[in-house]
């Protein structure tokens, strides 16, 4: 399914006059079993796409919340291969689009060709790699393209237009717009001029646009929603799960979905 499962989700939401809610969770925190159960509940609560965070020892693009979750997941034994196996089992029970978010080294170690083949078999639809800029991404993009899997790039507020054009031209699935210059984590205020930023991206691509980093509340989600196709929430979900448990996360996701 890959790219088409993601595209269908954005189209369906658009036709219904809604934005898509993309929820990041740290896979394997506290356990892969808990993650699998959570994915199904999130889907029922209104999440449209799930990002499964693959833990890494050195998560340079992440703030304290996701760093801590990564270390807990690693300590609990999570790995890329186990996460793909978990996703494979989940795919028999849910049709929600699932993408992996992983730093590059675990992917390299797995082997890019094997990875794409195994993702395809497991029903994982795409991949986001926060430390793989466009210039280095060709081998991975080619491996994913063989199976029509989405290679979802990140764009930053300071990405110059010529770069933006190159990145957008090779993107698939959706474009992940980082809302601010910084690492992941909840912010009280996001000062980036989102409207102008989104228009800049819109001008060079017909793909759906997701905005993430810093968004934690339904109010923030609602204020950004008019300018994009999807809202991405990570740290707020991971933090709520750790501090307050599953029921509180489900409640948060329902409120986020209602807000957009």
């Amino acid at each position: 399914m890959g790219i088409s499962r993601i595209a269908d989700t954005f189209v369906a939401n658009k036709q219904a006059g809604r934005k898509s809610l993309i929820v990041y969770i740290s896979a394997g925190d506290p356990s892969l079993k808990a993650t699998a159960s959570l994915v199904k509940q999130l889907s029922a609560a209104g999440a449209d796409i799930i990002e499964l965070g693959v833990p890494f020892s050195d998560p340079v693009a992440d703030g304290p919340v996701i760093q801590a979750a990564s270390y807990r997941a690693l300590a609990a034994g999570a790995s890329l291969s186990k996460i793909i196996q978990m996703a494979s089992a989940l795919r028999k029970e849910t049709q929600i689009p699932m993408v992996l978010m992983s730093y590059y080294n675990p992917l390299l170690r797995y082997g890019l060709a094997n990875l794409a083949a195994d993702m395809d078999k497991a029903g994982v639809d795409g991949l986001i790699v926060p430390d793989l800029p466009w210039e280095e991404s060709q081998p991975l993009r080619e491996a994913l393209a063989r199976y029509q899997l989405a290679g979802i790039p990140l764009i930053a507020p300071n990405t110059p237009v010529p770069r933006l054009i190159r990145i957008a031209a090779s993107a698939s699935g959706f474009i992940y717009c980082v809302s601010l210059t910084g690492v992941t984590g909840i912010r009280q205020n996001i000062t980036t001029g989102i409207q102008e930023y989104m228009e800049r991206v819109r001008a060079v691509s017909d793909l759906p646009i997701g905005v993430g980093f810093g968004i934690g509340s339904p109010e923030q989600a609602s204020s950004m929603a008019p300018f994009c196709d999807g809202i991405i929430v990570g740290s707020a979900v991971v933090h709520t799960l750790y501090e307050e448990g599953e029921a509180a996360v489900i409640k948060l996701v329902k409120r986020l979905k209602q807000a957009i």
Binding site: D131, E135, R163
Partner: peptide
Amino acid sequence: KNGYFGVYGGRFVPETLMP
């Protein structure tokens, strides 16, 4: 010109740092 010494080197950083 891409920062490679043979197969080693390159730029593997978040997009925000590329500019």
